[in-house]
Design a protein around this nucleic acid. Structure first.
Lengths: 277, 277
DNA sequence: TGAGTTCATCTCGATATGAGAAGAACATAG
DNA sequence: CTATGTTCTTCTCATATCGAGATGAACTCA
């Protein structure tokens, strides 16, 4: 050990040349989920450039490292996720459509060969959004659309069933599968379902979110009792919706998201018994 | 769209030069946890080289990109985690001491400026190990040791309290904090506590794991009832420990880990009420 | 031998859950 | 306008789970 590590360090930095190492690129990909027409949808872009040109993919792109070659500012990973989402879909980031989305890190995918160009490490993010307008393609994307998750033919193994029309590029089928499983699990113990709703929502709307994500119907009475009994999940606005349901029924009451960060006790999905082993 | 995307793609790859981009490095860091003397310990190395020479850090290092400059094989991220763990601690990877550790991805940290050398993205892994021998320093590490987590003065904000002797390099205090919170949460619904134990263990030993990770005492009778009632958590060996407890008591029975992947119903920690808001 | 500790099991009240029922409010077809 | 069917909201009841405490037997140590 030296008595002056500070000197060692500046000396080290002066002699350090990153170009002596094999290059690795870092990208950010986003699994953005929303509910449309009662079904879970994911935001996809059609690739306009190689590799995998013409195939569908999660919105994403390279992280701006910050340096002289491209003259870009260094950005944190979550900032890169929001930027890519905005660039490739035409949705506005700050205060606009993307202002109310919940964003969290999903995982990082770095198997050798997952990108034919070079060694690419992808940091995947998971986003939950209320119903948003149709996206407009931008950046490298030839097209962009909300696609029903059920139409992608995802298998439990993270693949797509043969015959599925919209094929996903890279290992994005696996990333999407992981994101869906995370969403299903997290709805149990976190108040995330409200992120899919408008600022004011009804209990039946909230139940529709759970049913869309979990893919199974819930007991309306028990769900209602449960949501109101979990402290901080929702709070009443005192108001009532101005219309009844599409097929009849009384006007439901309106609620806001509460201040709880965890749901206790949790809302467990009925089908969990199958997954235990 | 072209009618022959394959040609586009090979053409693209021929013209593609990664050196046109600002460089980003990717490292893997490991939060390796174990129980020693009834307390939770984490594996740390003392840095021998700049930056942060002399400070303590999580074991880790650069991912081998696979390329001509260094002549290394490309490796997946989890392989890199095991390799770094072995290199810097002298523990043997395959079939040896590291053979029985549980490894999972924790998260990725990429804030600009977190490494003074250059833009570095760190993929953090979380490892759960039964009691292992003392490590031997290797690679870039000047020293390596199991350190009691309680002695590091971690705050909820991911910092270290002033006056703590062992200072952590980079943002490793935050990474460690995140790893501990993941461990605490995951013990609730996954049979991970058995990963801290020998192949055969007693219910009181399992309870000691929960108490060490959660930092609170549990009701022995209720814990016993609960563990035996969760399907697939543990299975009886039929045998009985050959000694009683250190301070008396009957000889406890021996169990093995069961085949459950999720604990249902979960074992909820008593103190969770404080974290809800 | 005696005192103190621990394992393993049981009891009891409080709480949570699943399934079903019922009344009131509403949309829509006729 | 009326009749029919749907939906919201609240109940009931049986069952499952949980927290707290108690008990007897087995064991260590002084």
């Amino acid at each position: 050990m030296t008595s002056d590590p500070g000197r060692d360090e500046s000396e080290f930095l002066a002699n350090y040349d990153p170009r002596d190492y094999d290059p690795v690129s870092v990208t950010v990909d986003v699994v953005a989920l929303t509910i449309r027409d009662g079904a879970l949808h994911v935001l996809l872009v059609r690739r306009g450039a190689a590799p995998f040109a013409g195939m569908w993919a999660l919105p994403g792109g390279f992280v701006q490292a910050g340096g002289p070659l491209q003259g870009t500012e260094a950005e944190d990973l979550s900032e890169a996720a929001v930027r890519e989402l905005a660039e490739e879909t035409g949705l506005s980031a700050k205060g606009g459509e993307l202002g109310r989305v919940h964003l969290e890190q999903l995982g990082t995918y770095g198997a050798p060969g997952r990108d034919p160009r070079m060694r690419v490490i992808s940091v995947a993010y998971l986003a939950f959004a209320p119903e948003l307008p149709d996206p407009e393609a931008g950046g490298d994307a030839a097209d962009a659309a909300w696609v029903a998750v059920g139409a992608l033919g995802l298998t439990e193994a993270g693949d797509q069933r043969p015959g599925t029309t919209r094929r996903l590029a890279f290992d994005h089928a696996r990333i999407l599968s992981d994101g869906l499983e995370r969403a299903r699990a997290k709805l149990e113990y976190a108040p995330l379902a409200t992120a899919f709703c408008a600022p004011e929502f009804t209990i039946p709307e909230l139940r529709a979110v759970y049913e869309a994500v979990w893919g199974e119907e819930l007991h309306a009475g028990n769900f209602h009792r449960k949501v109101l009994s979990v402290p901080g999940f929702v709070e009443s606005t005192g108001a009532t919706s101005d219309k009844g349901g599409r097929r009849g029924g009384p006007r439901p009451r309106l609620y806001r998201a509460g201040d709880a960060r965890l749901l206790h006790p949790a809302l467990l999905r009925p089908s969990r018994e199958e997954e235990i082993r």
